[in-house]
């Protein structure tokens, strides 16, 4: 019994990290007012680049760096279209998603399924010896530990630093932020690119740690789930963790139920839950019109910034 709980929790965490990293990146982009629907594409190019560098014999750090850079480059493209050219962010984002998918499928063909680097579970000394907790949290891949660090860092930056204040100001009222001397364009560029970096890292997590090697469309929609997760979290990293764990937990449970024959909740309902909850949260947000400072979407989300005059 306790064994089952341990491994379900283990798989829950494992399954949530890719979505979580991408979602945290997207939270930064959206907090600054840039809606980036290209997350799926950025994850895919990140996954491919990481796997390809690993296969070519590159060290893990280089593979991760390459994956993050690939995500960042696509994000930069989105930033150029939506910030500099002030194009429609929805269209640009969708174009990025499709571009990333097509590009990775095309470029990845020669290396489908070949494994270079496998980032195995790395039990942290001492911590992994703690019964139950150690096994669940500290017997994971290095990228999971990295995610543990990124979460509080992201939340701290966003809500407790001047940088975070600037980001939120730009996302909520770009004109006023500009008036008091914040460089709206620079902040938005940085946040969008940061989002690309984390999406690329999320992709690398899938292609280097979760199921090593490149396969076409291997993210299987995790980028889109990450976007739903951002809304679910009401643009807060900690709540995104909750959403990602819920997603991971449902993934782990659906197979556990099948493998044991104990089907407490039908699988189809389990699979539906994250989306149902996202819709539920959206409806709730609509009612939270006067919600607190982080209770609703950034006011300038999706609105290009023009300096008047």
């Amino acid at each position: 019994m306790i064994d089952d709980i341990v491994f379900i929790s283990q798989i829950t965490i494992k399954s949530s990290i890719g979505v979580l990293l991408a979602a945290i990146g997207e939270i930064f982009a959206e907090r600054s007012g840039i809606l980036n629907l290209g997350v799926e594409g950025m994850m895919l190019v990140g996954a491919l680049t990481g796997a390809a560098i690993g296969l070519a014999g590159g060290p893990p750090l280089l593979a991760l760096g390459g994956g993050m850079l690939a995500g960042a480059l696509l994000a930069m493209l989105h930033a150029f279209f939506s910030i500099t050219l002030r194009a429609d962010q929805t269209l640009s984002g969708l174009a990025i998603a499709i571009l990333g998918g097509g590009l990775s499928n095309f470029l990845g063909r020669p290396i489908i399924g070949e494994v270079g680097i496998r980032l195995k579970a790395f039990p942290l000394p001492y911590l992994s010896d703690i019964p139950v907790i150690g096994e669940i949290f500290f017997n994971q891949s290095v990228l999971v530990y990295l995610a543990y660090l990124i979460i509080p860092f992201a939340s701290y930056v966003l809500f407790h630093t001047r940088t975070g204040l600037k980001i939120r100001a730009v996302g909520d009222d770009a004109v006023s932020a500009d008036v008091i001397g914040i460089n709206v364009t620079a902040i938005r560029y940085c946040c969008t690119i940061f989002g690309g970096i984390l999406a690329g890292l999320g992709g690398c997590y899938l292609s280097l740690a979760y199921t090593p090697g490149w396969k076409e469309n291997m993210t299987a929609g995790q980028g889109w789930i990450a976007i739903a997760m951002v809304i679910f979290s009401l643009w807060s990293p900690y709540r995104a963790v909750l959403g990602a764990l819920l997603f991971g937990g449902l993934t782990a449970l659906q197979f556990f139920f099948q493998a044991t024959g104990i089907e407490v909740i039908p699988v189809y309902i389990l699979l539906m839950l994250p989306y149902l909850l996202t819709i539920g949260v959206l409806i709730l947000v609509m009612h939270l019109k006067k919600g607190g400072k982080d209770g609703k979407s950034p006011r300038c989300l999706g609105v290009p910034f023009h300096r008047e005059g």
């Binding site: 491994f7 798989i11 494992k14 979760y210 396969k215 299987a220 995790q222 782990a252 197979f255 493998a259």
Partner: peptide, 25 residues
């Protein structure tokens, strides 16, 4: 022989999760 269904012909991430679940069981 315990059978668990992917409900798909291919899905690397789910295949991995499923195999790990079976190994842990």
């Amino acid at each position: 022989n315990t059978v668990v269904w992917l409900k798909s012909w291919r899905d690397p991430i789910k295949e991995t999760t499923l195999a790990e679940t079976l190994a842990a069981r």
